[in-house]
Write a protein that binds this DNA or RNA. Structure first.
Lengths: 243, 243
DNA sequence: CGCCCCCTTGAGCCGGGTCAATTTGGGTGG
DNA sequence: CCACCCAAATTGACCCGGCTCAAGGGGGCG
């Protein structure tokens, strides 16, 4: 079962950055009883899910979303390899949040039973580092809150892209290509699809995004961070020594 | 030092709801070396603060905010008695978030040294319940994210008011009056002051808010929750047995 | 008494929403 | 290799909710 090799090293990187010890991560990896594969657009966690398991994203990109009354999808956050999908369901099983997790690309997900979590959290340093992961998630929410609904569409989209690039980099994904559709970006920035399209074309014409193909590929990251007024220090990124 | 009586019972209520044991709360209260009073509009935590203490709001109402480049204030969340102001600074001291905490009314704040926190968190149940508090904070951010930037001004303002009412109720504050200025509401909903004013007048003319005085006082909470499509179950409120 | 902060009001404008087509391109089966 | 399908991307025209800016009130406090 060395499909793990890459996935587990990502998780290890992330948790070590949050202060976990080597033994902590080993135990965690052992507690992952099985891996499941989820195709793009399918749900990893359904909004009404009550399963007694925690999921960890091992490979691929996902999003946490909420349905609006009109049926629309609001994307609340993006998830990258190493992120826990639904820790909150384990910690606050009574809080009904009606939030689902959807795969944006094909994903590999690790599954941990609640009772194994109970045992894992007897390790204080592991418990603490997962707590830090929750706090970091909160920091990301705060940043998005100060961004969504304010400023021009250009800055909003740019900021979103910058944050995702930085978060992926923190877990060793260095590509400039982001696996989002324009629809995803619209649902995440609270802009209409049409306007996201116009904005992306503007970003392309400014030579900040690649003009080749329809993928979202950042070409001039510095300039993009500038117009987004992006400052990634809230992300607790590891010192720029790694790799 | 029985100024504590009311403040400590609020904190106790909140932490017990999150699974802390009686002894945990006692230890926490003992670790609060001193209380400080902060006047309305003053900062409880400055954006650049690096002090080695955690603060807990014991009385009054505050907000977490971030300055925008244009000097404007974005309110990211409101804080009510029992809420920790800056746990994230303790857990992730390296993450520079540039977030400040400002008192909206006169506030009483408890101060705990980092080193005392270190000792307190040796209690697993206390550690776990503070982790839950962080997760709950995240739930609140998610809810605001799905609200801000979407829907009409009416629904946005109504939703904000509903959430704050519910959160205050959860810590035993049952008044229908909310200590916010219209400026605060504008900074929190990403609406302009002028439009918040028009919206509040609309809410008043619909008999959802009190028409007497300029305070924000909810008169018809049911109807308000209806137009806000508010569902407080994400807040992990205690079962409606208390009091 | 006067100042300052907050609330209130009005007029005009614009960024982004809405809706409806049309195109593009990768995937699939024949 | 081609015909077909469908999701995503693209484009255009028109409209409106909320923003901007510029003036007033009004009340609490030194």
């Amino acid at each position: 079962v060395r499909v793990e090799s890459k996935a587990s090293s990502t998780l290890r990187l992330k948790l070590r950055n949050l202060g976990a010890q080597a033994g902590d991560v080993d135990s965690l990896l052992e507690a992952i009883r099985r891996h499941i594969c989820v195709a793009a657009h399918d749900n990893i966690v359904r909004e009404t899910d009550t399963a007694a398991q925690v999921r960890v994203l091992l490979a691929g990109t996902a999003c946490a979303y909420k349905r609006r009354e009109d049926g629309g999808r609001s994307i609340l956050s993006f998830q990258h390899p190493g992120d826990f999908c639904d820790l909150q369901r384990y910690l606050l099983p009574d809080a009904k949040s009606a939030i689902g997790i959807q795969a944006l690309t094909d994903c590999t997900v690790g599954v941990i039973d609640f009772e194994d979590m109970d045992r894992l959290l007897l390790r204080p340093t592991l418990s603490l580092s997962l707590w830090r992961a929750s706090v970091l998630e909160g920091a990301s929410y705060r940043e998005r809150l100060s961004n969504v609904g304010r400023g021009t569409a250009l800055a909003r989209v740019a900021h979103l892209l910058c944050e995702q690039l930085a978060r992926r980099e923190a877990v060793g994904i260095h590509g400039a290509k982001l696996p989002f559709s324009q629809i995803d970006i619209a649902d995440a920035t609270a802009l209409s699809i049409g306007h996201v399209n116009r904005t992306i074309q503007l970003l392309r014409s400014l030579n900040l995004l690649s003009k080749l193909g329809s993928a979202i590929e950042v070409v001039d990251r510095n300039q993009l961070e500038k117009i987004a007024a992006f400052d990634g220090r809230y992300l607790n990124l590891p010192s720029p020594a790694a790799n």
